[in-house]
C-alpha cells in the first residue's frame, strides 16, 4: 500500500508538472503581449513585444542568447522577473516572531498566506484602502519589472508595480541614524564588487505590511538587497531582513530571484491599486 501511495503521489506531482510544461509549450497567441496566458517562454530573442502595454514574461526563458559578460558596475536596463516576484502567499520561511511581532502580526487579516481570512474580512491597507505598499513589501509582493537608471550620485529604480521609484544614494553618504519613518524608507548603495550592487535601507514605516501574508515589521527594520549582475542579460536579487523588534533573528526573504533584461524600448502596462478602485473591489466582497 505504501508503494501504491508513493506511486499515486508521484503520479499527481508528475501530472501537475506535465500540465505546467504543456501549458508553457502551448502555441503562442498572436497579438497578445508576453505574459500569463500569452506566449510561452520561447528564447528571449524571439519574444514578440507590443508597442504599448506589455505585461511581462510568463516565465524566465532558458535561452537568453545572445548574451555576454556582465558590464562593470552597471545595472542599467529593464529587468523582468517573469512571475517569480509575485509572492502571493508571503515571504518564504520567515524567522520566528518576537512577542511584539506576534502582537503586531495578529492585527493583520490577509487575503493569502498564514493569516488568510475570507475576502470580505481582509484589512490589508494596500488592497482595501489604496495605501502605498511601502518598503520592503515592494520587493516581497508583486515585484514585477524594475528599471535601473544610473546618475553620478545615485541609482534610480523604477518599479512597474504601483509605478513607484526609489532613489538609492551612491554618493558615499551614510544612512540616517535617527530616521523619520517613510513609506519607502531610506536607501544607500555601494558596489561590493564590480558586479554586485549592495543596497542598505532603514527608516521604514511600520504601518506597512512586510508581505502579502501580513507579516509585520517595525520601524527598526534594516534591509540589505544584493543585486548581482550575472551576465549582460541576467540579474539576481537576494534580500536579507534584520528586525530584532519583530523577528528573533535576521533572515533571507528572497534568495537569488532571477531577472532577465528585456528590450530598453519596452512600454509596460500600468499596474497600481488606485484608492477608488480598491475600495470598489472591496465592496464586491462585502456583497457576497
Amino acid at each position: 500500500m505504501q508503494r501504491a501511495c508513493t506511486f499515486l503521489i508521484s503520479a499527481s506531482v508528475g501530472l501537475a508538472i506535465f500540465s505546467m510544461v504543456t501549458l508553457a509549450q502551448a502555441p503562442p497567441q498572436q497579438g497578445a503581449p508576453p505574459g500569463r496566458g500569452g506566449p510561452p517562454p520561447v528564447p528571449l530573442s524571439q519574444v514578440k513585444w507590443e508597442p504599448w502595454n506589455n505585461t511581462g514574461l510568463r516565465a524566465i526563458p532558458q535561452n537568453v542568447e545572445p548574451d555576454g559578460p556582465a558590464p562593470r558596475r552597471d545595472l542599467t536596463g529593464i529587468w523582468d522577473p517573469a512571475r517569480g516576484g509575485i509572492g502571493a502567499r508571503g515571504a518564504r520561511n520567515p524567522a520566528p516572531l518576537t512577542e511584539w511581532g506576534q502582537e503586531k502580526g495578529g492585527t493583520h487579516k490577509s487575503g493569502d498566506g498564514i493569516r488568510q481570512v475570507p475576502a470580505d474580512q481582509i484589512n490589508d491597507p494596500l488592497s482595501t484602502l489604496g495605501d502605498p505598499g511601502g518598503y520592503p513589501r515592494q520587493l516581497l509582493f508583486e515585484l514585477r519589472h524594475v528599471q535601473f537608471l544610473h546618475t553620478p550620485q545615485s541609482v534610480v529604480a523604477l518599479f512597474m508595480w504601483e509605478r513607484r521609484w526609489r532613489v538609492i544614494w551612491a554618493d558615499g553618504r551614510q544612512l540616517p541614524t535617527d530616521p523619520d519613518p517613510r513609506w519607502y524608507g531610506y536607501s544607500v548603495g555601494r558596489w561590493d564588487d564590480d558586479y554586485t550592487f549592495v543596497v542598505n535601507s532603514n527608516g521604514t514605516d511600520e504601518r506597512t505590511w512586510l508581505d502579502n501574508a501580513g507579516n509585520p515589521h517595525s520601524n527598526d527594520l534594516r534591509v540589505e538587497e544584493r543585486w548581482h549582475r550575472v551576465s549582460q542579460k541576467r540579474l539576481e536579487l537576494t534580500v536579507t531582513l534584520d528586525d530584532p523588534k519583530a523577528y528573533t533573528r535576521p533572515w533571507v526573504a528572497i534568495d537569488k530571484l532571477q531577472f532577465v533584461q528585456i528590450p530598453p524600448n519596452t512600454d509596460l502596462m500600468e499596474m497600481m491599486n488606485a484608492a477608488s478602485e480598491v475600495q470598489k473591489v472591496a465592496e464586491q466582497y462585502k456583497e457576497k
Binding site: 497567441q29 505574459g35 496566458g37 500569452g38 511581462g56 510568463r58 502596462m269
Partner: peptide
C-alpha cells in the same frame, strides 16, 4: 485576476 494578468488572454 488583475488587469495586468488578464490582458494577455484578451
Amino acid at each position: 485576476g488583475n488587469p495586468t494578468d488578464v490582458t494577455p488572454a484578451g
